[in-house]
Write a protein that binds this DNA or RNA. Structure first.
Lengths: 253, 253
DNA sequence: CGTAAACCGTAAATGGTGTTAACGTAGGTG
DNA sequence: CACCTACGTTAACACCATTTACGGTTTACG
């Protein structure tokens, strides 16, 4: 029926491939350790069989990390979609807050994706994993804000050389397509913002912050709001704070 | 001779205790895996013997992490001591830059100390490890800057409730002794700064940043300098940038 | 259609891990 | 002196990733 060019075998292979990842994620959700044996057993197989699909344990981890990131990003996107499309500022804040909530609710998954010594460069199958979906989401949202408000961004020529390269031909978490060369300073602002968001959340999740601040989320809120003016949201701060605090209130223990 | 109240036995115990940690750190330095067996073997013992000193592998890791943090902090302090005592601004920047260099040169140690799901609360032997020495160093340095320049700090009453508690009676990385109650907003500034420093460096070390930016350190420098004005260092920015870039230049591959 | 090859799973084995239990033996203590 | 505690041992368990050799299916091809 489906005019896919895939042979039956390839389809089946792709299916078990997906099942491996799904099973792994299920294990993580049940707070169990992720191991080849556990995954295999739950699939009714033996561990060595997994080597038909995965070259090593680390590769499985990378695969799972990619999928976890993808699913989590969907969650951030869904949170944003609770707001009207033109509320670009609110959408970014809500997604970021949801990012934090996710990190706290799934610290192991968070660590897998964002605190993993990520497969050392040499990894070939980058074609698929090359960029984090969450990176895509946030760049898109910041870009939407900029297109609506045109807050000032640094002039590319004023940036240090390596920074210029990075914003003109981004490698990591981009989606710079369609941004005029002279406006690429926007990417720099994005990186600044991502650094801050990543910093607070990681600090919180890894327990290097006063528990009361983690509980209340005050330092997170503070970080978000102090960045807001940089992207032209100075006037919206009170409303955004309400949005963020509201979403943070539901504490997943 | 030494009028210590310690019996001979206790001294010997303390010695092997220290040797365990030292051996573990040596293993890490040689890029070998940290395992009870490896540590024991290198000490001429067997693995189960270590359980006389350590309740579990995780406890060993925590112990090592504490010591690693202590030694690294000495390194940051030494870097600061290359500058005259009254150059408080330069000292902070140099220490922070050295922190970054250390993180890149010893990513595993860095991960151990700063990206570890830190023993879950219940850990009793907090008396000793309760706070990170690096936290102490940086609070001290920021405080020194404030005592010299008296940059404006937020009024405590303006902070959110949990933040007030956190700055008035700090738990995690403090040394607030002697700071007047009305000046405790300084602690809030410190936490903001630490969040930023932690964010960039962790982002860099875990490979979630454009390699060219990691190589050049541009985003790190940018983060540092954008924070400088907040602690009254706006006028020193050019000099501080030179200081930071200079220390960052020596790239430990 | 039948055969060869590619594929996918298995069992067995290797060398690693943390951890527990039972056992001896030295050191300091009454 | 005897006693007991602390410290180390060996043996064993359960788990882990990974490799090898082997058998059966499924596909593809002549």
């Amino acid at each position: 029926m489906t005019a896919e060019p895939t042979t039956r075998r390839e389809r089946q292979r792709e299916a078990t491939y997906a099942e491996i990842v799904a099973t792994s994620i299920a294990l993580l959700r049940e707070r169990e350790d992720l191991s080849l044996r556990a995954v295999a057993q739950r699939m009714g197989m033996t561990a060595p069989a997994l080597y038909r699909y995965v070259a090593s344990y680390q590769e499985l981890v990378d695969l799972v990390a990619f999928e976890v990131d993808r699913e989590a990003t969907e969650r951030f996107r869904a949170a944003a979609d609770e707001l009207p499309p033109d509320d670009v500022a609110g959408r970014l804040c809500v997604s970021a807050a949801e990012f934090r909530q996710w990190a706290h609710g799934s610290p192991r998954e968070f660590g897998l994706v964002f605190a993993n010594p990520i497969a050392d460069s040499a990894c070939i199958r980058r074609d698929a994993l090359t960029l984090s979906s969450s990176g895509h989401l946030f760049t898109g949202q910041i870009r939407a804000i900029w297109e609506q408000r045109h807050f000032p961004v640094p002039v590319v020529a004023d940036l240090p050389p390596a920074a210029q390269q990075a914003v003109l031909d981004p490698v990591i978490p981009a989606e710079s397509e369609g941004i005029a060369i002279e406006d690429r300073g926007l990417m720099w602002v994005y990186m600044q913002g991502w650094t801050q968001l990543y910093g607070v959340v990681t600090l919180e999740v890894f327990g290097h912050m006063d528990p009361r601040l983690v509980e209340s989320g005050d330092l997170f809120v503070d970080t978000m709001l102090r960045f807001a003016p940089r992207i032209g949201l100075a006037d919206d701060v009170p409303r955004l704070e309400a949005l963020i605090r509201d979403r943070i209130a539901a504490h997943p223990h």
